[in-house]
Amino acid sequence: MERWARELSARLPVLAPARYVVARPPGAFAHRAGHAWEQLVLPVSARRAAAILCPANLAPLAGRRNVVVLHDVAPLREPGWYSDLYVKWQRAVLPQIAKRAAKVIAPSAFSKAEVVELLGVPDSRVAVVPGGVDARFTPSADAAGARRALGLEDKDYVLTVASRTARKNLNVLDLAARRLAARGVALVAAGGDRPQFRDDAPTAGVRTLGHVDDALLPGLYAGAAAFVLPSLYEGFGLTALEALAAGVPVVAADRGALPEVCGDAAQLVDPTDAEAVAAALERALDDREAWRAAGPPQAAPLTWDATARGVDAVLSEVLA
Protein backbone atom coordinates (compact mmCIF):
# COMPACT_ATOMS: atom_id res chain seq x y z
CA MET A 1 0.00 0.00 0.00
CA GLU A 2 2.85 2.39 0.79
CA ARG A 3 4.33 1.65 -2.64
CA TRP A 4 1.04 2.48 -4.33
CA ALA A 5 0.78 5.75 -2.39
CA ARG A 6 4.33 6.80 -3.29
CA GLU A 7 4.08 5.85 -6.94
CA LEU A 8 0.67 7.44 -7.57
CA SER A 9 1.50 10.65 -5.70
CA ALA A 10 4.59 11.02 -7.91
CA ARG A 11 3.09 9.99 -11.26
CA LEU A 12 -0.47 11.29 -11.36
CA PRO A 13 0.47 15.00 -11.04
CA VAL A 14 2.93 14.51 -13.90
CA LEU A 15 0.33 12.69 -16.00
CA ALA A 16 -2.35 15.37 -15.51
CA PRO A 17 -0.93 18.43 -13.71
CA ALA A 18 -4.19 20.37 -13.74
CA ARG A 19 -6.17 17.53 -12.21
CA TYR A 20 -4.16 16.35 -9.21
CA VAL A 21 -2.93 17.95 -6.00
CA VAL A 22 -1.19 15.71 -3.47
CA ALA A 23 -2.41 16.07 0.13
CA ARG A 24 0.27 15.03 2.61
CA PRO A 25 -0.20 14.89 6.38
CA PRO A 26 2.35 16.53 8.68
CA GLY A 27 5.09 14.25 9.92
CA ALA A 28 3.50 14.09 13.37
CA PHE A 29 0.51 12.31 11.85
CA ALA A 30 2.33 9.11 10.96
CA HIS A 31 1.01 5.59 11.49
CA ARG A 32 -2.03 5.46 13.81
CA ALA A 33 -2.24 9.23 14.19
CA GLY A 34 -2.70 9.36 10.44
CA HIS A 35 -6.23 8.04 10.86
CA ALA A 36 -7.20 11.23 12.69
CA TRP A 37 -5.74 13.37 9.88
CA GLU A 38 -7.50 11.27 7.26
CA GLN A 39 -10.90 11.33 8.95
CA LEU A 40 -10.94 14.87 10.35
CA VAL A 41 -8.49 17.12 8.51
CA LEU A 42 -8.46 15.76 4.96
CA PRO A 43 -12.21 16.14 4.29
CA VAL A 44 -12.04 19.81 5.30
CA SER A 45 -8.85 20.63 3.41
CA ALA A 46 -10.17 18.87 0.30
CA ARG A 47 -13.72 20.23 0.51
CA ARG A 48 -13.41 22.00 -2.84
CA ALA A 49 -11.95 19.00 -4.65
CA ALA A 50 -14.13 17.19 -7.16
CA ALA A 51 -12.95 13.87 -5.71
CA ILE A 52 -10.47 12.42 -3.23
CA LEU A 53 -8.28 9.53 -4.39
CA CYS A 54 -7.30 7.32 -1.45
CA PRO A 55 -4.69 4.72 -2.48
CA ALA A 56 -4.27 2.66 0.69
CA ASN A 57 -7.45 0.84 1.78
CA LEU A 58 -8.89 3.69 3.86
CA ALA A 59 -10.75 6.92 3.12
CA PRO A 60 -12.61 9.71 4.94
CA LEU A 61 -16.03 8.50 6.04
CA ALA A 62 -17.43 12.03 5.77
CA GLY A 63 -18.20 12.33 2.09
CA ARG A 64 -19.15 10.38 -1.00
CA ARG A 65 -16.56 11.77 -3.40
CA ASN A 66 -13.92 9.18 -2.56
CA VAL A 67 -12.26 6.88 -5.05
CA VAL A 68 -10.55 4.30 -2.88
CA VAL A 69 -8.07 1.55 -3.71
CA LEU A 70 -9.00 -1.54 -1.70
CA HIS A 71 -6.01 -3.83 -2.02
CA ASP A 72 -7.68 -6.69 -0.18
CA VAL A 73 -10.14 -7.42 2.60
CA ALA A 74 -8.05 -10.05 4.35
CA PRO A 75 -9.04 -8.97 7.90
CA LEU A 76 -12.65 -9.82 7.03
CA ARG A 77 -11.80 -13.07 5.25
CA GLU A 78 -9.38 -14.38 7.92
CA PRO A 79 -9.58 -12.28 11.11
CA GLY A 80 -7.29 -14.69 12.94
CA TRP A 81 -4.32 -13.26 11.03
CA TYR A 82 -4.67 -9.89 12.79
CA SER A 83 -4.98 -8.36 16.24
CA ASP A 84 -8.47 -8.13 17.72
CA LEU A 85 -8.40 -4.33 17.78
CA TYR A 86 -7.37 -4.12 14.13
CA VAL A 87 -10.13 -6.53 13.08
CA LYS A 88 -12.76 -4.51 14.96
CA TRP A 89 -11.56 -1.31 13.26
CA GLN A 90 -11.59 -2.89 9.81
CA ARG A 91 -15.04 -4.41 10.34
CA ALA A 92 -16.35 -1.02 11.37
CA VAL A 93 -14.85 1.15 8.63
CA LEU A 94 -14.32 -1.00 5.51
CA PRO A 95 -18.01 -1.60 4.74
CA GLN A 96 -18.77 2.09 5.20
CA ILE A 97 -15.83 3.19 3.04
CA ALA A 98 -16.86 0.80 0.27
CA LYS A 99 -20.54 1.73 0.50
CA ARG A 100 -19.88 5.48 0.28
CA ALA A 101 -17.14 5.43 -2.35
CA ALA A 102 -17.92 6.85 -5.75
CA LYS A 103 -15.74 4.07 -7.16
CA VAL A 104 -13.60 1.29 -5.73
CA ILE A 105 -10.35 0.24 -7.42
CA ALA A 106 -9.03 -3.30 -6.85
CA PRO A 107 -5.57 -4.43 -8.00
CA SER A 108 -6.74 -7.81 -9.30
CA ALA A 109 -9.80 -9.77 -10.36
CA PHE A 110 -9.36 -11.79 -7.17
CA SER A 111 -9.52 -8.69 -4.97
CA LYS A 112 -12.51 -7.38 -6.90
CA ALA A 113 -14.38 -10.62 -6.21
CA GLU A 114 -13.51 -10.34 -2.51
CA VAL A 115 -14.77 -6.73 -2.34
CA VAL A 116 -18.01 -7.66 -4.10
CA GLU A 117 -18.61 -10.70 -1.88
CA LEU A 118 -17.50 -9.48 1.54
CA LEU A 119 -18.42 -5.80 1.32
CA GLY A 120 -21.48 -6.05 -0.89
CA VAL A 121 -20.24 -3.53 -3.46
CA PRO A 122 -21.97 -3.89 -6.85
CA ASP A 123 -19.73 -5.34 -9.51
CA SER A 124 -20.19 -2.25 -11.68
CA ARG A 125 -18.70 0.01 -9.00
CA VAL A 126 -15.39 -1.88 -8.76
CA ALA A 127 -12.68 -1.33 -11.38
CA VAL A 128 -9.57 -3.50 -11.68
CA VAL A 129 -6.27 -1.63 -12.07
CA PRO A 130 -3.18 -3.82 -11.53
CA GLY A 131 -0.17 -2.57 -9.63
CA GLY A 132 3.22 -2.21 -11.25
CA VAL A 133 6.95 -2.52 -10.92
CA ASP A 134 9.45 0.21 -11.70
CA ALA A 135 12.50 0.03 -13.93
CA ARG A 136 14.93 -0.42 -11.01
CA PHE A 137 13.90 -4.08 -10.73
CA THR A 138 15.93 -5.73 -13.48
CA PRO A 139 18.36 -8.66 -13.76
CA SER A 140 21.18 -6.09 -14.00
CA ALA A 141 20.48 -4.40 -10.66
CA ASP A 142 23.43 -4.07 -8.26
CA ALA A 143 23.44 -7.54 -6.71
CA ALA A 144 27.02 -7.25 -5.47
CA GLY A 145 26.27 -4.02 -3.63
CA ALA A 146 23.22 -5.53 -1.94
CA ARG A 147 25.21 -8.61 -0.94
CA ARG A 148 27.92 -6.48 0.66
CA ALA A 149 25.47 -4.23 2.49
CA LEU A 150 23.41 -7.12 3.85
CA GLY A 151 26.21 -9.57 4.62
CA LEU A 152 25.23 -12.10 1.96
CA GLU A 153 28.59 -12.55 0.25
CA ASP A 154 29.29 -16.00 1.65
CA LYS A 155 26.84 -18.19 -0.31
CA ASP A 156 23.94 -18.41 -2.76
CA TYR A 157 20.52 -17.62 -1.34
CA VAL A 158 16.83 -18.12 -2.02
CA LEU A 159 14.83 -15.02 -1.11
CA THR A 160 11.39 -14.31 0.31
CA VAL A 161 10.16 -10.75 0.84
CA ALA A 162 7.24 -10.71 3.24
CA SER A 163 6.22 -9.24 6.56
CA ARG A 164 6.34 -11.61 9.50
CA THR A 165 2.62 -12.25 9.50
CA ALA A 166 0.56 -15.40 9.75
CA ARG A 167 -0.92 -15.03 6.27
CA LYS A 168 2.53 -14.99 4.66
CA ASN A 169 2.88 -18.57 5.93
CA LEU A 170 6.68 -18.48 6.31
CA ASN A 171 6.70 -21.44 8.70
CA VAL A 172 6.02 -23.77 5.77
CA LEU A 173 9.58 -23.05 4.60
CA ASP A 174 11.22 -25.20 7.30
CA LEU A 175 11.62 -28.24 5.05
CA ALA A 176 12.79 -26.10 2.13
CA ALA A 177 15.37 -24.38 4.33
CA ARG A 178 16.84 -27.75 5.35
CA ARG A 179 16.90 -29.05 1.77
CA LEU A 180 18.54 -25.86 0.51
CA ALA A 181 21.12 -25.88 3.31
CA ALA A 182 22.20 -29.35 2.19
CA ARG A 183 22.94 -27.79 -1.22
CA GLY A 184 24.88 -24.90 0.31
CA VAL A 185 22.08 -22.40 -0.34
CA ALA A 186 20.67 -20.12 2.36
CA LEU A 187 17.00 -19.19 2.68
CA VAL A 188 16.73 -15.46 3.43
CA ALA A 189 13.68 -13.45 4.52
CA ALA A 190 13.41 -9.68 4.13
CA GLY A 191 10.59 -7.84 5.86
CA GLY A 192 9.58 -6.49 9.23
CA ASP A 193 6.46 -6.82 11.33
CA ARG A 194 3.54 -4.62 12.31
CA PRO A 195 1.63 -4.48 15.60
CA GLN A 196 -1.71 -5.19 13.90
CA PHE A 197 -0.48 -8.52 12.44
CA ARG A 198 -0.41 -11.88 14.15
CA ASP A 199 3.27 -12.79 14.08
CA ASP A 200 4.48 -15.81 12.16
CA ALA A 201 8.17 -15.95 12.95
CA PRO A 202 10.23 -17.71 10.27
CA THR A 203 11.68 -21.11 11.02
CA ALA A 204 15.11 -21.26 12.58
CA GLY A 205 16.52 -22.33 9.21
CA VAL A 206 15.57 -19.00 7.61
CA ARG A 207 17.98 -16.09 7.93
CA THR A 208 15.99 -12.94 8.70
CA LEU A 209 17.20 -9.58 7.38
CA GLY A 210 14.39 -7.48 8.87
CA HIS A 211 13.43 -4.31 7.07
CA VAL A 212 15.63 -3.76 3.99
CA ASP A 213 16.27 -0.27 2.67
CA ASP A 214 14.34 0.35 -0.53
CA ALA A 215 17.52 1.25 -2.42
CA LEU A 216 18.91 -2.24 -1.80
CA LEU A 217 15.82 -4.20 -2.81
CA PRO A 218 16.45 -4.41 -6.59
CA GLY A 219 19.94 -5.81 -6.03
CA LEU A 220 18.69 -8.18 -3.32
CA TYR A 221 16.22 -9.66 -5.80
CA ALA A 222 18.67 -9.76 -8.69
CA GLY A 223 21.25 -11.65 -6.62
CA ALA A 224 18.85 -14.38 -5.52
CA ALA A 225 19.06 -17.89 -6.93
CA ALA A 226 15.26 -18.13 -6.58
CA PHE A 227 12.34 -16.40 -4.89
CA VAL A 228 9.52 -17.96 -2.88
CA LEU A 229 6.20 -16.53 -1.64
CA PRO A 230 4.09 -19.18 0.13
CA SER A 231 1.41 -16.66 1.12
CA LEU A 232 -2.10 -17.88 1.95
CA TYR A 233 -3.73 -14.68 0.65
CA GLU A 234 -2.51 -11.93 -1.67
CA GLY A 235 -4.62 -9.16 -3.15
CA PHE A 236 -1.96 -8.65 -5.80
CA GLY A 237 1.49 -10.04 -4.98
CA LEU A 238 3.84 -7.13 -5.55
CA THR A 239 6.96 -8.91 -4.30
CA ALA A 240 6.41 -11.81 -6.70
CA LEU A 241 6.10 -9.31 -9.55
CA GLU A 242 9.33 -7.58 -8.48
CA ALA A 243 11.11 -10.94 -8.46
CA LEU A 244 9.83 -11.77 -11.96
CA ALA A 245 11.01 -8.39 -13.25
CA ALA A 246 14.44 -9.07 -11.73
CA GLY A 247 14.71 -12.32 -13.67
CA VAL A 248 14.57 -14.54 -10.61
CA PRO A 249 12.95 -18.01 -10.71
CA VAL A 250 9.73 -17.71 -8.72
CA VAL A 251 7.84 -20.25 -6.62
CA ALA A 252 4.51 -18.83 -5.45
CA ALA A 253 1.32 -20.00 -3.82
CA ASP A 254 -1.55 -21.04 -6.04
CA ARG A 255 -3.86 -18.82 -3.97
CA GLY A 256 -5.33 -15.33 -4.16
CA ALA A 257 -4.11 -13.09 -6.98
CA LEU A 258 -0.73 -14.77 -7.40
CA PRO A 259 -1.81 -16.92 -10.38
CA GLU A 260 -3.04 -13.73 -12.10
CA VAL A 261 0.23 -11.90 -11.54
CA CYS A 262 2.64 -14.77 -12.20
CA GLY A 263 0.89 -16.62 -15.02
CA ASP A 264 3.07 -19.38 -16.47
CA ALA A 265 6.29 -17.57 -15.53
CA ALA A 266 6.35 -19.09 -12.02
CA GLN A 267 5.81 -22.45 -10.38
CA LEU A 268 2.49 -22.29 -8.49
CA VAL A 269 2.16 -24.70 -5.57
CA ASP A 270 -0.11 -25.49 -2.65
CA PRO A 271 1.29 -23.25 0.14
CA THR A 272 0.18 -25.67 2.85
CA ASP A 273 2.24 -28.52 1.34
CA ALA A 274 5.82 -28.15 2.61
CA GLU A 275 7.05 -30.95 0.34
CA ALA A 276 5.58 -29.26 -2.75
CA VAL A 277 7.20 -25.93 -1.84
CA ALA A 278 10.60 -27.51 -1.21
CA ALA A 279 10.49 -29.61 -4.39
CA ALA A 280 9.51 -26.58 -6.50
CA LEU A 281 12.46 -24.61 -5.15
CA GLU A 282 14.81 -27.46 -5.99
CA ARG A 283 13.42 -27.54 -9.53
CA ALA A 284 13.88 -23.77 -9.75
CA LEU A 285 17.56 -24.15 -8.88
CA ASP A 286 18.07 -27.06 -11.25
CA ASP A 287 16.47 -25.26 -14.21
CA ARG A 288 17.09 -21.68 -13.20
CA GLU A 289 18.04 -20.28 -16.59
CA ALA A 290 14.68 -21.18 -18.15
CA TRP A 291 12.79 -19.65 -15.23
CA ARG A 292 15.01 -16.56 -15.27
CA ALA A 293 14.10 -15.96 -18.89
CA ALA A 294 10.38 -16.32 -18.21
CA GLY A 295 10.06 -13.57 -15.61
CA PRO A 296 10.82 -10.23 -17.30
CA PRO A 297 8.38 -10.68 -20.22
CA GLN A 298 5.59 -11.52 -17.75
CA ALA A 299 6.34 -8.41 -15.68
CA ALA A 300 6.96 -6.02 -18.58
CA PRO A 301 3.35 -4.82 -19.13
CA LEU A 302 2.84 -4.10 -15.42
CA THR A 303 4.48 -0.72 -14.91
CA TRP A 304 3.60 2.07 -12.47
CA ASP A 305 3.01 4.35 -15.44
CA ALA A 306 0.37 1.90 -16.66
CA THR A 307 -1.14 1.82 -13.17
CA ALA A 308 -1.28 5.63 -13.08
CA ARG A 309 -2.99 5.72 -16.47
CA GLY A 310 -5.53 3.12 -15.32
CA VAL A 311 -6.30 5.05 -12.13
CA ASP A 312 -6.59 8.29 -14.09
CA ALA A 313 -9.10 6.65 -16.43
CA VAL A 314 -11.23 5.67 -13.43
CA LEU A 315 -11.05 9.21 -12.07
CA SER A 316 -12.04 10.60 -15.47
CA GLU A 317 -15.12 8.40 -15.43
CA VAL A 318 -16.07 9.53 -11.93
CA LEU A 319 -15.53 13.21 -12.72
CA ALA A 320 -17.58 12.89 -15.90
Score class of each variant (00 low, 15 high):
Leu302Arg: 07
Val161Ile: 09
Ser111Gly: 05
Glu78Asn: 10
Leu15Gln: 02
Leu94Tyr: 07
Ser316Pro: 09
Ala313Val: 05
Arg100Gly: 05
Asn57Val: 07
Ser124Thr: 09
Ala177Tyr: 11
Phe236Met: 01
Ala135Thr: 15
Leu85Phe: 09
Pro75Glu: 04
Ala299Ile: 05
Leu217Trp: 06
Ala284Pro: 01
Val318Pro: 12
Ala222Ser: 07
Ser45Arg: 15
Glu260Met: 11
Ala308Phe: 13
Leu209Trp: 01
Arg19Met: 06
Ala182Phe: 00
Pro55Glu: 00
Leu232Ala: 08
Arg32Val: 13
Leu229Ser: 13
Val73Glu: 04
Pro259Thr: 13
Ser83Cys: 01
Leu281Glu: 00
Leu315Trp: 14
Val314Pro: 05
Pro60Asp: 04
Asn66Trp: 05
Phe29Ile: 08
Val116Cys: 11
Ala5Lys: 01
Asp286Lys: 00
Leu238Thr: 14
Ala299Ser: 01
Gly256Phe: 13
Pro139Ile: 04
Gly27Tyr: 12
Ala101Asn: 02
Ser111Pro: 03
Glu2Leu: 07
Arg255Thr: 14
Ala30Lys: 09
Lys99Asp: 09
Val185Phe: 12
Asp154Arg: 13
Ala102Trp: 08
Phe227Lys: 02
Phe29His: 13
Gln267Arg: 15
Glu282Gly: 06
Asp156Cys: 04
Gly256Ile: 12
Ser108Gln: 01
Gly151Arg: 01
Ala18Glu: 09
Pro230Glu: 01
Leu241Glu: 12
Leu315Phe: 13
Glu117Met: 11
Pro60Leu: 01
Lys168Val: 15
Arg64Gly: 10
Ala320Asn: 07
Leu238Asn: 05
Val185Gly: 04
Ala177Ile: 08
Val161Pro: 07
Arg100Ser: 09
Thr239His: 08
Ile97Ala: 05
Ala290Lys: 00
Gln298Gly: 07
Gly27Pro: 08
Val269Asn: 13
Arg48Cys: 04
Ala50Asp: 15
Asp312Trp: 03
Phe236Ser: 01
Val133Ile: 09
Ala92Lys: 09
Trp89Arg: 06
Arg292Met: 12
Ser140Asn: 06
Ala176Trp: 11
Arg179Asp: 04
Ala51Phe: 12
Val93Leu: 10
Val133His: 00
Glu114His: 00
Ala313Ser: 02
Arg6Phe: 10
Ser108Ile: 02
Arg3Ala: 14
Ser124Asp: 11
Ala265Asp: 03
Ala300His: 05
Pro271Gln: 00
Leu173Pro: 01
Ala33His: 14
Trp81Tyr: 10
Asp213Met: 05
Val133Asp: 06
Ala62Ile: 10
Val228Gln: 06
Ala10Lys: 09
Ser9Asp: 10
Val228Ile: 14
Asp142Met: 04
Tyr82Thr: 08
Arg11Glu: 02
Ala276Trp: 11
Val251Phe: 03
Gly219Thr: 03
Ala16Asp: 13
Lys112Arg: 15
Gly34Met: 08
Leu319Tyr: 05
Val261Arg: 00
Glu78Arg: 15
Cys262Asp: 13
Arg77Met: 09
Phe197Leu: 14
Arg194Ile: 08
Ala5Cys: 10
Ala101Lys: 11
Ala253Glu: 13
Ala224Leu: 07
Ala278Gly: 03
Phe227Glu: 14
Ala181Val: 14
Leu315Arg: 03
Leu70Arg: 03
Asp254Arg: 02
Arg194Asp: 15
Asp199Glu: 14
Val104His: 10
Arg164Glu: 03
Pro17Asp: 02
Asp156Lys: 05
Ala201Asp: 07
Ala177Pro: 05
Asp199Ala: 15
His71Ser: 07
His31Phe: 14
Arg148His: 10
Arg48Val: 08
